[in-house]
């Protein structure tokens, strides 16, 4: 199959690699119909995330058609599925609390040491995101092996829904949604969102769905601010405006009820907070 493989810092290639196979009873093989590039993939591209190996297949935002299943998968060949990026067993303590991104069993035992030694606790498992998160092949490929396929994949029963309407359920929409959820938004709140990339734009929409009355969207790319405005946000361009002063004034001196940082790991723009 063809797959996007990592070869080093700023060196990502489209390779021909051998196909995935069913290895465990709960596995499924999915033929990819749509896949996205995440902002997080830039960290791999930039060589910022350790424990990448030459030939690692990238991609953790993908969907497709089930082509093969293991004996204990609940999926059927032919089903259309969206696959969330964390690989979760569904049976451990954290999974029982719906904290799938902290699953204790998805990451192979021999890959858990790295996170444990470096950060005190092991990482959970993710698709296509280095060996400290399991060393799983990702979905920027024609085919992917999906472990614990009875837990993560969402079956899309309606063929009339195009991929573009559901693909973002893999990562970027739930990330923005959870950011808003963690902010404890109450009805009538004013919410400030830093960063109007895809996660920020989903956080803006989520905040409104959770009852926010006003959302201030902060960025410096006019096209991103335009999108935020289209979703109902009031825009603040930190290159033209002193953000703190603007927010204080726009909220009558109280300040926003909730602030959400959707800027991410690598970009820095000191003037966006002052």
């Amino acid at each position: 199959m063809k797959a996007i493989a990592w070869h080093g810092k700023h060196d990502v290639r489209c390779d021909t690699v051998d196909d995935p196979e069913i290895l465990n009873p709960r596995d499924a093989i999915v033929r990819i119909t749509s896949t996205a590039i995440c902002g997080s993939d830039l960290h791999l591209f930039d060589g910022m995330i350790p424990t990448m190996q030459k030939g690692d297949v990238l991609g953790h935002e993908f969907m497709g058609e089930v082509v093969e299943v293991g004996a204990r998968s609940t999926l059927r060949p032919g089903q259309r599925v969206v696959v969330p990026f964390p690989i979760a067993c569904g049976r451990c303590y954290h999974c029982s609390k719906h904290e799938y991104a902290a699953c204790e069993n998805g990451n192979p035992a021999e890959n858990q040491d790295i996170g444990r030694e470096g950060m005190g606790q092991p990482m959970s498992a993710l698709f296509g995101y280095s060996h400290m998160t399991g060393g799983y092949s990702g979905g920027q490929a024609e085919l992917v092996r999906v472990p614990f396929s009875d837990v993560g994949p969402l079956v899309i029963p309606d063929d009339s829904i195009p991929d573009e309407k559901v693909l973002f359920l893999t990562d970027i929409l739930p990330t923005g949604w959870m950011a808003a959820e963690n902010a404890g938004i109450e009805s009538g709140d004013t919410v400030a969102v830093w960063g109007c990339g895809p996660v920020g734009l989903f956080a803006v929409q989520s905040a409104f769905l959770m009852g926010a009355e006003r959302v201030m969207a902060i960025d410096h790319f006019p096209h991103r601010l335009e999108l935020a405005q289209r979703f109902g946000a009031e825009t603040v361009n930190f290159e033209q405006t002193k953000v703190y002063e603007a927010l204080q004034d726009m909220t009558g001196g109280i300040g926003p009820d909730a602030c959400i940082d959707c800027v991410g790991l690598e970009p820095t723009a000191p003037s966006s907070t002052t």
Binding site: L23, P25, C89, G90, A109
Partner: peptide
């Protein structure tokens, strides 16, 4: 818990 031992490999050879 999971009923199987996790592996990050893509196929038998890997």
């Amino acid at each position: 818990e999971a009923g199987e031992i996790a592996t990050g490999a893509r196929n038998r050879r890997l």
